[in-house]
Amino acid sequence: MNWMAIGVTCKLATLTSFALLIIGLPIAYWLTYSKWRWKFLIESIVALPLVLPPTVLGFYILIAIGPHSPIGRFYTDLVGHPLPFSFQGLLLASILYSLPFAVQPFATAFEQVDRKLIEASWTLGLSKLKTFFRLILPLSTAGLITGVVLSFAHTLGEFGVVLMVGGNIEGITRTVSIEIYDEVQALNYATAAKTSALLLLVSYAVLLLVYAMNRRVWSVWPRK
């Protein structure tokens, strides 16, 4: 087994799920409590990675961060090297790719917090922000863990996006799923089998954890 690929994968999955915890919370909060009539437009964009082929998503990310885009040029000027085919570029792509896997469980959890509790908190003098940290967040822990674990597991297995944005650079962007593909191409079935079994076991364990804790993970978007 290629331990370097496993290392890259674990690092990528950990950073992705951590970043999604930070980014996903405000997005989920907004999606849950906003009364904006066009909210469904944003909801659909967040859910897009669920149905879009990873190669399509990867293609657009590649264009967006490439040397011909303003974002890509700005990044290159700032850091000194381009974003595509780097670990940072891969991380960005993973965050976008796993966004619904974090945001949906977060939003479902927020939605289940009784409105009356939130109103009680307001009348007791707590601002919306304080109410979020002292009431909504503690009551949503199961959903938070679900979101983090799911985005971790989803990042572990991503292939198309990695190939498009990260390429296949040993020790930097070569993840376990790319490794398996390479081994099969080289007819090293035994190595591919071992790595596949590892990925299967880890994914199953992760889903066991999630399903045992919260059976409503795959529910559709919460509705008021």
Partner: peptide, 20 residues
């Protein structure tokens, strides 16, 4: 004026105690 700033005691119909 938001509810936070009205200096109220409010009790809703089903009490809404914080379960956590």
């Amino acid at each position: 004026v938001p509810p936070q700033a009205r200096g109220l005691g409010y009790m809703g119909q089903d009490y809404a105690l914080f379960p956590n």
